[in-house]
Each structure stands twice: as structure tokens, then as C-alpha cells.
Nucleic acid binder design. Structure first.
Length: 345
RNA sequence: GGGAGAGUACCAGAGUGGCCAAAUGGGGCAGACUGUAAAUCUGCUGACGUACGUCUUCGGUGGUUCGAAUCCAUCCUCUCCCA
């Protein structure tokens, strides 16, 4: 997902993030043209393409998750991670140091530490050793981070990532460890990677009881609208996820009334708006029946509309969450929304 | 008028005596997708039954055979070539 969203109202403003944090944070490698048509220009910075016209914060991932999803054609060592390109077989090496260098070049406002993301069912022994490695890598990331300067005249933050799989004591250990770096924000990684949702929620609670409430807490790679509301309820401020765009491309719509598989025949003659909440112009310009027709016909426009809708819906959801938090009605609103959002239409 | 060929499930299209309820693709129906190797992947798709299974299908009809989508006869329809 291109857009991350700072959701909570509690103290997420800090020196590197603009006042409108809580609006949008864009990952550098994705489709922000969906959001800001006409504003993006691709330029080459130090051999790396960078979007220069986006005026919101840019967040880049380190490649830690790629390493995780590459399992099979990669080798993790103390030095870093060697892997082969699935495209041409060429060999590459990610290290905590070169990953920081790359993110500097891209010009990310928020850079992520290089970590190992073990699977959700990792045994304790492996999880523990992995965590130690991630912590050693984190020290190296900050070493390089402090030894280098921002490249484009504005500050670049580096967020550590709390790991520890599904083991509360490892999570506690990690959450305590990362604070020594006095970072601008902290990420929670290694969740929604196969473990049951209640376990994920529990880990968030464990970690957020330790991470400073005055700095953004970023839950990486999560998730469904319900996941996000549950995480906000547990003190998470920022998210990013492929779900609204990938699932959108594959015909799944998240709406204020529930989840829709737009390819289902039941929408064939449904000429109602995509989402009555109307979070985005596509919701009211297009009907479910038309969107279904486009999806069934394999038209690219279906993927575009669905992605736009889902992104707008996610933005709408966290916008509403902020309002409810500010107004003191979050708990009740969340209960109601979780019920709705769990619905399959 | 003469000659050649073809008709198979929703569509296209394999199959040319038993291993065929019938390959494959499309379409249809559903599901999956969580720090993007993903405009992707998976399942089902004649009827009835959870299932072992049973029944009805390969243009129509009638034959040959223990057995036919496959062989024969005939009818119908379509395509192409020559006049």
C-alpha cells in the first residue's frame, strides 16, 4: 500500500513530520499518483529514481521485508542478507549500512531499520536468535545513520523496528532495547505474518505498554480495516499495507458497510454507488454494477477505481478515528465499525 | 449445377471402438491476498446425492457391436472451392 496513515491524536507531531502528519505518508516505491494526480515527477537522484514533487512525508522500507518474502533465494548472515534477483539471477547484498545509504539517497523523511522478519510460527529459539541479530543490525543502522548527513536539506528520521515474533518476553526485550536510540518514532514489525489476529493484538499491547506514547508508533504492514481500528485502540499511530491496492486490484472493496467481492454475480444489476459513505469521487461516479463489469472484463480501470476507493476508504476510516478520539467517542464508534467492517456483503 | 469438408458441454476446441461425464483454453460461480517477485493465485463448473455412486449427454433417426462421441445407413444444418 502506498499510503500510511497516522491515526492517533496523541503526540505524533515531531520535528521531521509536518503538521499534517496523520494525513498521508507515502512509500517511495509505489503509486502515489493515485492520490495527487499531476503533482508527481520522477527524477534521478544519485542513480536512484525519486519522486520529487510529493510534498508530504516519504517513508521507505529498508528491504527487511523483501528478505522475508524472498525466503528461498536468500541467505542471512551476520553481515547482512545476500539474495538473487528473481528477474535475472544477479546477486545482491543488503547490509544495515548500505540500506541506510540507499534510503538517504531516495530522500525518505522516515527511513526504516534493516531487520529480520521471522514467520509468525517461528519457534522461540529461532525467534530469540533472530531478535539478537536484528538488534545488532539496528546498532549498525544507527551507526551509519549518525555518520551520514541528510542529502537534500531536510531532516531524515530513522525508525527502529521492534521484533520478537509472538513471544511477549522477546517483545518486551525488544521494545526496551530500541529506546536507547532515542528515535523520532518506533515501528512494530513481524506481525500479521501468519499468527492469529488476537495474538497480534496482544503483542501490540505488550509493546505499546513500553514504547513512548509521545513518539509515533508505526505498525508495519497491517492490515485490514478491523486490524487498524484494533491497533489504533491499542495506541498505534501509523500504518502501511498493500491490502487496499492489492486486494482492490483483485476485486475486493472495503466499504463503510462491509467487504465486497465486486466480481460476485450479486452486484451484476446493482446500480448503487460503490460506497454510500462517498469517501472519494469514484464512489459516487461509478456504480457497483459498472465496476463489476470492468473487473469481469479484465479492464485496468477496475483495478484503478478499486484501488482509489480502498485508499480513500482507509483515509476516511482513520480520519474518522481521529475525530472520534478527539471527541472522546472512539470506543463506541470502534465497536460499531468493527461489526460493520467484519461483514461480508 | 459440380466437388470437398464440418457438426462435441455456455463458447472455442481436443478426442476417432472400452482407461470418456469427455483434454485444453475462454466464460461462469466462489475463495485467498496484511512492512507489494501479485492487473495474481486456488477451487468448482451435465443432473441428483455429503460420499462410494446412479442417471442423461458428443446435430436427428435407425443400425453394427458384449461395448459407440468414435464404425455403417439415412436425414438435417453449416462452411469452403469450381461453374
Amino acid at each position: 500500500m502506498p499510503v500510511g496513515t497516522a491515526a492517533s491524536v496523541k503526540g505524533v507531531l515531531h520535528r521531521n513530520l509536518r503538521e499534517d502528519v496523520g494525513a498521508q505518508i507515502i512509500l517511495a516505491n509505489t503509486y502515489h499518483l493515485y492520490l495527487r494526480p499531476g503533482r508527481d515527477v520522477l527524477e534521478n537522484a544519485g542513480g536512484v529514481h525519486r519522486f520529487s514533487s510529493w510534498d508530504g512525508p516519504v517513508l521507505t522500507d529498508s528491504g527487511g521485508f523483501q528478505v522475508f518474502s524472498l525466503a528461498g533465494c536468500r541467505k542471512i548472515t551476520e553481515e547482512g542478507c545476500r539474495f538473487s534477483s528473481h528477474i535475472d539471477g544477479s546477486k545482491h547484498l543488503f547490509t544495515p549500512e548500505n540500506v541506510i545509504d540507499t534510503q538517504r539517497i531516495i530522500g525518505a523523511d522516515i527511513m526504516m531499520a534493516f531487520d529480520e522478519c521471522p514467520p509468525g510460527n517461528a519457534p522461540f529459539d529461532y525467534a530469540s536468535r533472530s531478535l539478537e541479530l536484528t538488534h545488532r543490525w539496528l546498532e549498525r543502522c544507527f551507526g551509519r545513520y549518525r555518520a551520514t548527513a541528510p542529502k537534500y536539506g531536510y531532516a531524515q528520521s530513522l525508525f527502529p523496528i521492534v521484533q520478537g515474533c509472538t513471544y511477549p518476553d522477546l517483545r518486551v526485550k525488544s521494545a526496551e532495547f530500541v529506546q536507547q536510540f532515542d528515535a523520532d518514532g518506533y515501528a512494530i514489525g513481524g506481525l500479521a505474518v501468519g499468527e492469529p489476529a488476537p495474538v497480534m493484538y496482544n503483542m501490540i499491547e505488550v509493546v505499546n505498554a513500553i514504547l513512548p506514547a509521545g513518539r509515533p508508533r508505526y505498525l508495519m504492514g497491517v492490515g485490514t480495516p478491523v486490524n487498524i481500528l484494533e491497533a489504533i485502540d491499542r495506541g498505534v499511530d501509523m500504518f502501511d499495507c498493500v491490502m487496499p491496492t492489492r486486494n482492490g486490484r483483485n476485486g475486493m472493496l472495503f466499504t463503510s458497510e462491509g467487504v465486497i467481492n465486486i466480481r460476485n454475480e450479486k452486484w451484476k444489476n446493482d446500480f448503487s454507488p460503490v460506497d454510500p459513505a462517498g469517501c472519494c469521487f469514484v464512489d459516487t461516479v461509478y456504480t457497483k454494477a459498472y465496476l463489476r463489469h470492468l473487473a469481469i472484463s479484465g479492464e485496468m480501470l477496475a483495478a484503478q477505481i478499486a484501488s482509489m476507493h480502498n485508499l480513500a476508504f482507509y483515509m476516511w476510516l482513520v480520519q474518522r478515528a481521529r475525530e472520534e478520539i478527539a471527541g472522546g467517542g472512539f470506543a463506541a464508534w470502534k465497536r460499531e465499525m468493527v461489526e460493520k467492517l467484519s461483514r461480508r456483503l
